[in-house]
Amino acid sequence: MARPRGYDRETVLDRSMELFWRLGYDGAHLAALVAHTGLNRFSLYKEFGGKAGLYEAALDKFLGQLLSEYRAVLTRQPLGLENIEAVLRALQYGSQYYGCFMINTLTQRDTVPEAAYAKAMAAGEEIEALYIGNLAGALARGQITPGSNVSGLGKMLQALDQGLHIQGLAGATDAQKDRVISAMLAGLRV
C-alpha cells in the first residue's frame, strides 16, 4: 500500500512559485526549494521529476490564474477600450513586486526549461488575441480610428503590457504606470 503524501501539492506549488518568482530559475537552487517548500528531495523528484518539473508545475498554476484574470476582464461585453484600460490599470507594483512570473520566464529563455518557455509564449499569444478582440470591438464601436490595424495594435498592447511589468520590476511607480496607460489610450481614441 502506498504511503500518503506528507505534503499538500498546492502549498508546495505556491511556495515554489514564490521562490522561482523572486530568485528566477537559476537562483532557486534545489536546497532552497526543499527548505522553502518543506518537500524533501525524494518527494520533489517523485512528484515533479526534479527542479524543471516543479518549475513547470508552478508556472502552470500561475498561468491558469493569470489567464483567468485576463479572460474575466477582456471578455466583458461590449468589447472595447474600457476592458483594455481596466486590465492594464489592475496592475499594481508595490514594494514586494517581483514582476510577472510569465514575463520573468520569457526573459530567462536561456535558463528556464524549454517547455516552460513555450507555455509562457502561448499564454502571451492568448493575451494578445484577447487584446485584438477588444480592439476589433473598439473599432466596431467607433472608439478608435476607422481602418486601424487591430492586429498590429494588439501586438503593441501586448508589448506595452509586458513592458509595464518590466518597468515595475525596475522600480517604476504606479503613478508612472498610469501616465503611460493614459498616453497610450489617448493615442488610440478617435
Rank of each mutant, 00 (worst) to 15 (best):
M1N: 14
M1S: 11
A2G: 15
P4G: 12
R5L: 12
G6H: 15
Y7P: 08
Y7Q: 14
R9P: 14
R9Q: 08
E10H: 11
T11N: 14
T11G: 09
V12E: 07
V12T: 04
V12L: 12
E18C: 10
E18Q: 13
E18M: 02
E18L: 08
L19P: 00
F20K: 13
L23H: 13
Y25F: 07
G27P: 06
G27Q: 10
H29L: 14
L30Q: 12
A32I: 08
V34Q: 12
A35C: 06
G38N: 06
L39T: 03
L39Y: 04
L39C: 01
L39H: 06
F42N: 15
S43L: 13
Y45E: 10
E47I: 04
E47G: 05
E47R: 11
G49V: 05
K51Y: 04
K51L: 09
K51E: 05
A52K: 08
L54S: 09
Y55Q: 13
A58H: 10
L59Q: 01
L59W: 08
G64P: 08
Q65K: 15
L66E: 09
L66H: 04
L66V: 01
S68K: 15
Y70T: 15
R71N: 03
R71K: 06
A72M: 03
A72V: 14
V73F: 09
T75R: 00
Q77L: 07
Q77T: 14
Q77C: 06
L79S: 08
L79V: 02
I84Y: 15
A86V: 11
L88S: 03
L88T: 00
R89A: 12
L91A: 05
Q92I: 01
Y93R: 12
S95C: 10
Q96D: 14
Q96W: 09
Q96Y: 01
Y97E: 06
Y98A: 15
Y98L: 14
G99N: 07
C100F: 07
C100I: 05
M102V: 15
I103A: 08
T105L: 02
T105M: 08
T107E: 02
D110R: 04
D110Y: 09
T111V: 11
V112K: 00
A115S: 11
A120D: 10
A120M: 00
M121T: 11
A122F: 02
A123G: 05
G124R: 02
G124M: 08
E126L: 09
E128D: 13
A129K: 02
L130S: 02
Y131N: 04
Y131A: 03
Y131H: 02
I132E: 00
G133C: 04
N134V: 02
A136H: 09
A136L: 03
G137Q: 05
A138M: 00
G142L: 05
G142M: 00
Q143Y: 04
I144W: 00
T145F: 07
N149I: 00
G154C: 13
K155P: 05
M156T: 12
M156L: 12
A159V: 06
A159H: 07
G163I: 10
L164A: 01
H165G: 07
Q167M: 09
L169P: 06
G171Y: 10
A172M: 09
A172K: 12
A172R: 12
T173P: 02
T173R: 06
A175N: 08
A175L: 10
Q176R: 07
D178W: 10
R179V: 11
I181D: 07
M184T: 11
A186L: 13
R189L: 10
